[in-house]
Amino acid sequence: MKISLWLPLVLGLLAGSSAGAQTLSGTVTLYTSEVLPDVQVQIDGFRKLNPKVDVKVFRSGTGEVTAKLNAELAAGNVQADLLWVADPTYFDGLAKKTLLEPLNVRGVRAPSSALYGGGTYAEVRKLYNVIGVNTKVVSTLPKGFADLRKPEYRNKLAMPSPLFSGGALATAGTLSRTYGWAYFQSLAANGLRIEQSNPITTTKLIGGEYGAAILVDYSLRREAAKGAPIAVVYPREGAILVSTPIAVLRSSPNKAAAQAFVRYLYSAEGQANFSKLDYLPVVPGAPRPAGVPAAIFTLPSADAYIAQNKADISARFSALFNLK
């Protein structure tokens, strides 16, 4: 089911500069695939700082958000000031076309390792694709992605669709590059089901419709903390880092407020908010959420591979699982 919302919201922040604080006003529009209540937490922080900035939010899956922006770019009528979705390859394409504004991260501790595209888009927090297990449905925990091919998980597996979810595209690209398409063929033979999104898959995993699912770690930790029978498995082969950058569109008529939005996410308060929401902050020294391993071993990035083969990945996956 498509979730697509326009929410006029009041927020603001004081943009720091060497000359002092600048009062922000006007409208900023954020296009995002991020979980709306989580975005709201950050918005609430802004509202305390500058209530003169009106913010509109369009929220949907990464594929639908980027399709909307592509249509607006083609029509020469871009409505977004900020883009925040789980597809670094899309940002890279925008950066190469000089459609992104260099980020202004003066006065905040934005790690250089989190800045990409010549500083035009950036990671503000981290999340990983791991394996969630409903312990009431499956008694044996898998140790890694390879184990999901075993008989004990037959007809009990699920993951979101890479046609809708940028995080799922990272899964499809990373695992097909690591194991080849034979891996997903074996999962299909083992009864892997494809749901539209991470939230839908998580809900069905908690409800016992599935015993195991490849999902983002933060939502699994949240549900386990609420008492759901969920175990979080960080695969022995390595978790999949899901890049979810944010950028300011060069066409933005309110770059000052848009840039301030990004800076707030790097502030001590913004990073602490991420931790409270079970995301892993990127700023050194920021608090870590409970339940996160001290060190997370990850599979090598497949971003370049996905960028070169996105259409083929989508086509192969669609054919294998009869997706439309």
Score class of each variant (00 low, 15 high):
Ser176Cys: 14
Gln196Val: 02
Gly167Asn: 12
Gln308Ala: 15
Ser197Thr: 00
Ala272Phe: 07
Arg263Gly: 06
Thr298Trp: 05
Arg236Glu: 15
Phe46Lys: 14
Pro151Gln: 03
Pro162His: 05
Gly208Phe: 06
Pro8Gln: 12
Leu115Asp: 09
Leu103Cys: 09
Asp54Ala: 15
Val65Lys: 06
Arg47Gly: 08
Ala212Val: 02
Ala158Tyr: 05
Arg177Phe: 14
Pro88Arg: 08
Glu101Gly: 07
Tyr128Ile: 11
Lys156Pro: 12
Ala228Cys: 06
Ile206His: 06
Lys143Asn: 14
Ala21Phe: 11
Pro300Asn: 09
Arg149Glu: 14
Leu115Asn: 02
Pro88Phe: 01
Ala302Tyr: 02
Pro289Lys: 05
Tyr31Phe: 15
Thr98Asp: 15
Lys97Arg: 15
Ile296Met: 11
Leu280Ala: 05
Gly117Leu: 02
Gln196Thr: 04
Ala286Trp: 02
Thr174Cys: 11
Ala319Asp: 11
Leu277Asn: 03
Pro8Ala: 05
Pro88Thr: 00
Asn322Gly: 12
Lys48Tyr: 11
Gly211Asp: 00
Leu115Ile: 07
Lys136Glu: 15
Gly119Ala: 04
Tyr116Ile: 00
Tyr179Arg: 12
Asp92Gly: 13
Leu241Gly: 04
Thr244Gln: 13
Val242Phe: 09
Leu7Met: 07
Tyr305Pro: 01
Leu9Gln: 10
Phe297Val: 14
Pro281Val: 04
Ser301Ala: 04
Tyr266Pro: 06
Leu5Gln: 00
Val216Lys: 02
Val55Gly: 08
Ile194Cys: 01
Thr201Pro: 01
Gly76Phe: 04
Ser267Asp: 03
Val41Pro: 09
Lys255Ile: 13
Pro111Trp: 03
Gly238Arg: 13
Gln271Ser: 00
Thr89Glu: 13
Lys324His: 10
Gly173Ile: 09
Ala189Leu: 13
Leu82Tyr: 07
Ala182Met: 14
Arg193His: 05
Asp147Phe: 02
Lys96Asp: 13
Glu64Ser: 09
Ile206Gly: 08
Gly61Cys: 11
Leu249Gln: 04
Val53Asp: 07
Asn309Phe: 08
Val105Phe: 04
Ser197Asn: 02
Ser113Tyr: 02
Leu5Glu: 01
Thr27Phe: 09
Ile313Pro: 04
Ile240Pro: 11
